[in-house]
Design a protein around this nucleic acid. Structure first.
Lengths: 123, 123
DNA sequence: ATCTCTGCAAAGGCTTTGCACATAG
DNA sequence: CTATGTGCAAAGCCTTTGCAGAGAT
């Protein structure tokens, strides 16, 4: 994506302002409000592109659809609610210290933490 | 799955002895050696069932296919190699202490850690 | 004017489901 | 014998791709 287009701007803005990881459908739905005839394929194309340029990262939790969020380098910790299946981005209190050691020979470049349980709304 | 069948036994044994998370295809391929005419649908049916009975857990890493592993309650830490896309189960050195805090109102029931980087073979 | 991006629809890959037969209990 | 489990193929998602036209530079 070398050119600046309305669709690209809208998709980026949707992800950037979401505050939590969104599914492609959620992104597409939100983007549609600001750019009505946008296609789902365009959404996927931008997601792929934004992923490759490190602006967006994927967040997966088993049994749930893929999600994507803005990559500001801070969202390494997430919370998955097992009741409502929502995903939340939590403040990172790990101070960039990998919470586990890898055996010799493994070069650790980064890490992610997923907490799971019940969110305030489902409490 | 209330009945004991050859296929069920084989699938369970494949997962239990794998030592690392496997994709449905890998599981099916390995199971086929011991039970040649086993269908992929049977593999999926057992995976679903074993997941619901907590004997098997899913492990996801963005951009890679879903994987499943034996749930012995110890494999909370994994390593994803970005070069060869393999997933490894690491020894858990977290001592069951969640590596991050959740805000008030979130009830943490468990957690998982994913380290990523380069594995010994791809070093 | 040129080359990229978009929308649409078709194609692909992975997972689930329907159904008749096999098989455990 | 009866109900569950299996294999096969079809159906269902979600995601990617091909193509002609729209749009950015």
């Amino acid at each position: 994506m070398k050119r600046k287009t309305r669709q690209g701007e809208v998709i980026l803005e949707v992800i950037r302002s979401a505050g939590r990881p969104l599914t492609p459908m959620e992104i597409h739905r939100r983007a549609s409000r600001r750019s009505p005839r946008i296609g789902i394929a365009t959404t996927y194309r931008h997601l792929k592109d934004l992923g490759q340029s490190q602006q967006v990262v994927g967040v997966d939790y088993p049994g749930q659809p893929h999600r994507y969020e803005w990559a500001d380098g801070k969202d390494k910790v997430h919370f998955a609610c097992r009741a409502c299946d929502k995903l939340f981005a939590l403040e990172d209190t790990t101070e960039n210290t990998p919470p586990a050691k890898a055996p010799k020979g493994f070069e650790v470049q980064g890490f992610e933490v997923m907490l799971y349980g019940t969110c305030p709304e489902c409490e």
